[in-house]
Amino acid sequence: MSSTTLTQKQALAFATPAFIALLPFLGACLYILRFSLSAEKGSIDGVSLQAYRDLMTPFFGRSVWLTLKLAFVASAVVMLLAVPLAFLLTSLRSAAARRLLTVTILLPMILNLLVQAYGWILLLGPSGALNTLLKTLGLIDRPLFLLFNETGVLLGLIQTSLPLAVFPIVGAVRAVSPEHLEAASSLGAGHWRILRDVTLPLLRPPLVGAASIVFAFNASAFAIPLLLGGRRVQMMGVAIRDMISPLFNWSGAAAAGTVLILLTVLVLVVSAWLVRITTQKTGG
């Protein structure tokens, strides 16, 4: 063992502060889990599985399906946009251009969601700029409905989670050693081939990592379906909010939250596992 490999004790010492910071969260998790098993709806009292049993309705099932579907599609599109953005960001030579692009990508995290939704309505609403333009050009008779449905929610999810994907990928792209690429290039491989055979395989773990984060983030979204889905797109986050606030079914919300978390964690674990076995294969 060289001196730079950590002993278990050292590793633990290095990790302890982060655990302490995470402690309130773990407390909250246990609290939620306990609440989901409560026999009462508004307080923790007794033990019962009733809250989970109450979730077994076709409506909740559809909500789960819709949540997973939208989160998945949004993650796929985000990755399709994030990788080129990361390539662009790392290849810009001018520092000013790099700063500008960085800030632009971060914008969706900064601006109040209500105000952003307002921006989208002005652009894509039934009488927004786009529909007006298409109508004037005579391309459509009736407005295109791009908001207040699944399309609107997808757009919002993509927009808000894009920064989450771009920056980890930028970090990973920086770490790709140029020698690999130059070697491939000197062998006469075209850009698409290098991308397929060299860059993407090298980037696979961070790419899957970024996609998982985006997926998890989107699966728990609630403000976007509320504002851009016109409340018509019943994702689980919205269902949970409804249970908390007007229905005061806190144990039900805790149960639904637990189900959502378990599902997301399952997806994360499976994708991490897939990365492991595929990289082992290509590595071997």
Partner: peptide, 20 residues
């Protein structure tokens, strides 16, 4: 017929103003 639920009055106001 339903376009949206009126979760946010300011949003509704904008939709009426733009004749949607």
């Amino acid at each position: 017929n339903l376009l949206t639920f009126g979760e946010n009055p300011a949003q509704l106001s904008e939709l009426f103003r733009s004749d949607a």
